[in-house]
Design a protein around this nucleic acid. Structure first.
Lengths: 265, 265
DNA sequence: CAGTGGTCTAGACCACCAA
DNA sequence: TGGTGGTCTAGACCACTGC
């Protein structure tokens, strides 16, 4: 009764078994997890929507509910999916209150709770919006061929009237075809939510490199600081499913009244 | 057969049930988790040692193996314990290769793997070692009364011949009674491992606040930089069990050839 | 080989939510 | 009230480790 060797009614867990060289065995629940992941990637279930119930999935995949449960548990641990008792399991999204701005770790020094930008005194100023050929460094980060079309956006984020973040976004041209400067400026709420809604691009995880740098005159000007003042440089590479890089973001954070908060386990 | 209402043979899950005001119900596996946690805190099982097998614990607590399993799963997810198939479950420690330096997120710019200090070209220079009364700010962070005895250690960490981190450690006097400057200087390997071995203090998690600051002349001197150069300020508060703060560490990191690496989920 | 953690199942019951 | 996720059990079998 191992689905690996059965012609399942929904998506058979064929796994092209018996190649000889590599056993490549993986537990059933991981196979189920992969299948669910594929559906998420394919966009069968969209961000914010409910996925089928555990019972339903168990029946489709011809496994027990417990096995589906373990598969979903891992997806939930990776923030790909959110469980809600009594209601169902939902595809995670950057558009919801609770998971909003989960990649922004900047906090006001006094605040104990997470910072919620895009609120009262906050504002976004788009400075530049360009379509150009990817510089070598950017191409490498985004896994593009050097010279491929990319979008470059420069903007300033203002919190409580204080220009706090100066950042530069690099996006691959293909997936974000049609993105305009007006769109970048107009959208309320998290930029990542807009990426989901308008382009079907879901950022799943990210890696950041932090450094302390001295503000260049132009940068200092835009952030209302003196040239040479220390700024926190945050280089973020964000990934969709399958570890596909989809955004390179270089930010300069003012940290005179705010700090980057990190939890270590 | 609910242990909450039974006189268990080992540690009864009494939970002082039936207080009337707050139901305060928690699932069985969480109660088991707490019991295991208490043993860890009490030091019944020491870092690096194996805890009893799942079967054993299940028998002691009079619950099924699956329930113990879920309890341990959560402890493993929190890095309090490490599972090893075929061998057993072990109390996590900062002294082991794989979990060493898990709080140090500084990496060489080229390196893709995690940095391993305390290796070839690395060195630790203890600059100061003092026993003094806690300043208000330190006392607050460490949950001490202002003026209680604390230890202050200043040191420089040198990687590959380059002085890279200038840091200041604040430790509560009581738990670290007997710590000497010589001990700080002599111990090879992670400082947190020494804390475990010599003082039974296990750091379980930490919170960090990062800022960019300008190097003061004295700091610049020690790190071989020019005054005013940007440095990454990392203020870390480390906790033992029960969210008890046990160390305040203020570090200044050179980030000219290294960066602070962070993963976001 | 015995002992450990890891997987999988089937079924019972509980807690929560919405209609 | 029915459907969903959440807990708990008991038992079978697998995979890995070390004697």
């Amino acid at each position: 009764m191992n689905p690996v060797h059965s012609t399942a009614p929904d998506t058979p867990l064929a796994e092209t078994a018996g190649e000889g060289s590599a056993p490549a065995f993986s537990p059933l629940y991981q196979q189920i997890q992969q299948l669910i992941l594929q559906r998420l990637e394919a966009g069968d279930w969209k961000p914010g929507e409910a996925i089928p119930s555990e019972m339903d999935l168990a029946a489709r995949f011809r496994v027990s509910q417990g096995t589906v449960r373990k598969a979903i548990d891992e997806l939930a641990a990776d923030n790909l999916v959110v469980r809600r008792q009594g209601k169902g399991t939902f595809v995670a999204t950057h558009a919801e209150r609770h998971t909003q701005y989960r990649f922004l770790k900047l906090r006001a020094d006094e605040a104990t709770t997470a910072e919620t930008p895009a609120n009262d005194g906050s504002e976004r100023r788009v400075l530049e919006f360009r379509r150009l050929r990817a510089p070598a460094e950017v191409a490498r980060a985004l896994a593009l061929r050097s010279g491929e079309a990319v979008l470059q956006v420069k903007r300033v984020l203002v919190f409580s009237g204080v220009p706090t973040i100066l950042e530069e976004l690099w996006l691959p041209g293909q997936p974000f075809k049609g993105l305009t400067a007006a769109q970048m400026a107009a959208y309320k709420g998290p930029t990542y939510a807009m990426f989901e809604l308008d382009f079907g691009v879901r950022m799943v995880r990210a890696e950041e490199k932090l450094r302390a740098v001295a503000a260049l005159p132009a940068q200092a000007e835009l952030l209302g600081m003196t040239p040479g003042a220390p700024l926190l440089s945050v280089e973020r590479l964000s990934f969709t499913y399958n570890d596909l890089p989809m955004e390179l973001r270089r930010g300069l954070y003012r940290t005179d009244t705010r700090h980057y908060h990190n939890e270590l386990n």
